[in-house]
């Protein structure tokens, strides 16, 4: 496929600008991004300039940027936080919610305040409850590979030629749809139950059990059983399920896409 070779030959030269915004998360998502190890340098050398991210760079005010990666849910009793997400939306072309907290609340769904020194901090909502979010990368923690893939595809979407844009658009579409779906920001094992098992779509492959980051899912007579008292609402099981979304046309090119991702990270 043309798409793949052209990119590898280094046709693309304009980097995008990217920022990391930390709301009520644990920095595990940023750590996951950094866990691309040497790949981080490839991304920063070739594709993206890191223009904001308090954990890594000294910039203290949010600049305009192409892509904002938001980690963490938002405490609605903290004006600093609610103002900040609005500012991020205003200043970014693409907003990507990374990780369970930003996408679906994750453990912060269990918060109910009452703790000093700010006992009124009791309500935490996923970012997409407050602003339009373009892309979801769920799970706790999201994986270095998923973050890498989404960064590369977003780069192609913004800077690629028509074919590359088409490929990136296809790849990102389900993650964009998830950001707007009625269940994306409400995800938990329940979503897998309601949107897959209850709809007669589960075929017992076990993807959900492998994806679960808290070992809440076992397979009983070939079907997922979720211990809901262990579930942290990260949404990994549902998004990993081949029956949550699956684009046959894209997946047919799995070999080329994997090859392309490998090549661009060289």
């Amino acid at each position: 496929m043309e798409i793949f070779t052209e990119h590898v030959n280094g046709i693309m030269i304009h980097k995008i600008t990217i920022g990391h915004i930390h709301e009520s998360g644990c920095t595990g998502c940023l750590a996951a991004l950094m866990d691309n190890y040497q790949g981080i340098f490839t991304i920063l050398d070739k594709y993206a300039d890191l223009v904001y991210g308090l954990t890594l760079v000294d910039v203290r005010k949010i600049p305009k940027m192409d892509v904002a990666l938001i980690e963490g849910s938002v405490c609605i009793q903290d004006k600093l936080a609610t103002d900040e997400v609005r500012e991020v939306r205003d200043k970014s072309s693409v907003v990507i919610a990374i990780g369970g907290c930003a996408c679906s609340g994750n453990i912060t769904r269990f918060d109910r305040g009452g703790q000093q020194n700010q006992p009124q901090h009791e309500s935490f909502v996923p970012v997409s409850d407050l602003i339009d979010v373009d892309i979801f990368v769920p799970a706790c923690a999201p994986t270095p590979e998923a973050l890498r893939n989404v960064c590369v595809m977003t780069y192609l979407l913004l800077r690629g030629n028509d074919e590359q844009k088409a490929l990136a658009g296809m790849y990102l579409k389900p993650l964009m749809d998830l950001a707007r779906s009625p269940y994306g920001s409400k995800a938990s094992f329940n979503t897998l139950m309601q949107e897959v098992i209850n709809l007669g779509l589960c075929m017992g492959c076990g993807s959900c059990a492998a994806a679960c980051p808290v070992r809440a899912i076992t397979m009983e007579y070939g079907k997922p059983q979720g211990l809901r008292d262990l579930c942290v609402n990260c949404g990994a099981c549902f998004s990993q399920c081949p029956r949550s979304f699956f684009d046959h046309e894209l997946m047919e090119h799995h070999e080329q896409i994997m090859g392309m991702l490998k090549a661009v990270m060289q």
Partner: peptide
């Protein structure tokens, strides 16, 4: 080894490794 739906799961784990750190490669 797997039947087609399981292979779909494997390929999705590679292309969309949402909860599959370290698996794709």
């Amino acid at each position: 080894v797997g039947v087609p739906c399981q292979i779909q799961g494997v390929r999705k784990a590679q292309l969309y490794p949402i909860g599959m750190r370290g698996v794709p490669d």
